[in-house]
Amino acid sequence: MLRLAKVNKYYRVGTHSLHVLRDIELEVADGEFVAIMGASGSGKSTLLNILGILDDYDSGEYWLGDTIIRDLTERKSANYRNRFIGFVFQSFNLLPFKTALENVALPLYYQGITRRKRNQIAAQYLERVGLRDWAEHTPSEMSGGQKQRVAIARALIAKPRLILADEPTGALDSETSKQIMDLLSEIHRSGITVLVVTHDPEVAARTQRTIRLKDGKVVDPQELAAAASHPGIAVGH
């Protein structure tokens, strides 16, 4: 599905250069359900940006399917984001002035599909997340869990092969978090690759595999196991 080889990323802050990602090696197979964990400042967001083709990297290779993601034009990267990747965010990020239906339909607008057609498709996806009756409501009239389900429907509507979820349960209570994770598991079972960035071990536990980041590096699983057997060394969660 996707592969990162020796990916490095620097942020230039004034005259200083901040090494945010160091030689990231990462492979996610088709249909995997993976969690990325790490403390804040560990480079999670930057990694997510790069995976979502929202940011460039400085060296290394990022393969998405058979394509190397490097030096893409804005138009091309927008197209990949639109057709390959579905985003789910911590704060839902629905457009407040649009109804649930219009929010779900938005990715199809950027594919040039007619309003009538995309509203039809959006209605199906709302049904799938159990919010058929909420189609004409605006986000302000919905609960957090409902909003996140609308956001998930929106992420799914373009039939992406990869779902990138950035702290999808960060703003929800534990009961609702459980429901959202159920929904993500269901999506995973339908064959879509799901990558969840989280700092919540319970969320990570629901996935098949956890990748840990620390100081811009992927923590070696063996090293992790060693650390676990030496309680004196703290491992960021």
Binding site: G52, E74, A78, R81, F87, N93, L106, P107, Q111, R154
Partner: peptide
Amino acid sequence: GVRKALGATPSS
């Protein structure tokens, strides 16, 4: 930001 993540090009 949302529109960009959903596939809007900068020019659009």
